[in-house]
Simulated assay, not measured.
Amino acid sequence: MPTVLLLGATSDISVAIAKEFGAHGYALQLAARNTEHLSPIQSDLKIRYNVDCTVHAFDALNYDSHQSFFDSLPVKPDVTICVFGVMYEEEDAWNDWKLTHRMIDTNYTGAVSILNIAAKYYSAQKKGTIVGISSVAGERGRQSKLIYGSAKAAFSAYLAGLRNKLFKDNVHVVSVKPGFVYTKMTEELPLPKPLTAQPEEVAKAVFNAVEKKKNTIYTKWMWKYIMLIIKNVPEPMFKKMNI
C-alpha cells in the first residue's frame, strides 16, 4: 500500500486531497500543528476508505523540528504533499512586519525546510514524489498580492529547481497552481465562478498529476492563458495598472 504525507492537513484542500488518495487505496499521514483538529478527519477517512490513517504533529515554522519529524514517521511516504500556507490582507501585511514575516516564512521558508528533508530522502532512495501547492499569484508581482505573491513566486522557483535537481534520481516534483478555490480562507471574497475551483477539483488534479508525472498544473485550464497574458503585458503599461 503506497503512503502519502499531507503537510498542513487541516485545510479544505488538504482534506479533499486526503479523500482522493484514500479512495485510491493510499495510506494517509496527516500532519498539522493543531493535531486535535485532525482527529475527526482521521476517523472519517478510516471509516470511509478503510485505509491506514495516522496523525502527526508538525509545525511549519519550527524548522529545527523538521528533521526529527520526518525521521519519526513510522513509514516513510511515497508521496509528500506540501499544502500549508497563509494569506493575510495585503494592506494589513504592508503595515505590519510580523504579518509579512509570517507569510514569507510559512509560504516559503517552512516549505523549503521540510521539503529539502523529504527530497534528500527520496534522492537516496532513487524514487518518490513531491507536490507543492503554489499559486498563480506568484507568476507576476502585483500590488494586490505583493507579499503573498512574492512568497509563492519564490516557492514556485524552488519547486522548479528541485524538479531539475532530482530528475536524475528518479524523483518527481509537481507544481500546483490552483487559481481561486472555494475554501474557508476565501469564503469572504467575491470570487468569479468560472475561474474558481472546488477543493475536490484540486484534489483530482493533484492525484492525476502524481499518477501521470505531470510537472506544472493549473486546476482551471483558463488560468494558464490568463497568466500568460498578464506576464506579457509590457512593464511600462503594467506598472500603471491597478491589479
Results as ranks from 00 to 15, higher is better:
Pro2Arg: 14
Val4Tyr: 04
Ala9Asn: 02
Thr10Phe: 01
Ile13Tyr: 01
Phe21Trp: 05
Gly25Lys: 12
Asn34Asp: 15
Ser39Met: 13
Leu45Lys: 04
Ile47Thr: 14
Tyr49Pro: 00
Val51Asp: 07
Asp52Leu: 11
Asp52Ile: 12
Thr54Val: 06
Thr54Ile: 05
Ala57Asn: 05
Ala60Asp: 04
Ala60Arg: 02
Tyr63Glu: 10
Tyr63Phe: 12
Asp64Met: 08
Phe70Ile: 15
Asp71Leu: 07
Leu73Asn: 06
Thr80Gln: 06
Glu90Thr: 07
Glu91Asn: 12
Trp94Asp: 13
Thr100Arg: 12
Met103Gln: 15
Met103Pro: 00
Asp105Met: 15
Gly110His: 12
Tyr121Thr: 09
Tyr122Phe: 11
Ser123His: 13
Gln125Val: 09
Gln125Thr: 11
Lys127His: 14
Val131Asn: 03
Ser135Asn: 02
Ser135Val: 01
Val136His: 05
Ala137Gln: 04
Gly141Cys: 10
Gly141His: 08
Ser144Ala: 15
Tyr148Arg: 07
Gly149Cys: 03
Ser150Glu: 10
Ser150Arg: 10
Ala154Thr: 05
Tyr158Glu: 01
Leu162Met: 08
Leu162Tyr: 07
Phe167Arg: 08
Val173Trp: 03
Val174Asn: 03
Ser175Gln: 06
Phe180Ala: 05
Val181Arg: 03
Val181Pro: 00
Ala203Thr: 03
Ala205Tyr: 00
Val206Gly: 01
Val210Phe: 08
Val210Trp: 06
Lys214Phe: 06
Lys214His: 12
Asn215Phe: 14
Asn215Asp: 14
Met222Asn: 07
Trp223Lys: 00
Lys231Cys: 01
Pro236Ser: 11
Met237Gln: 07
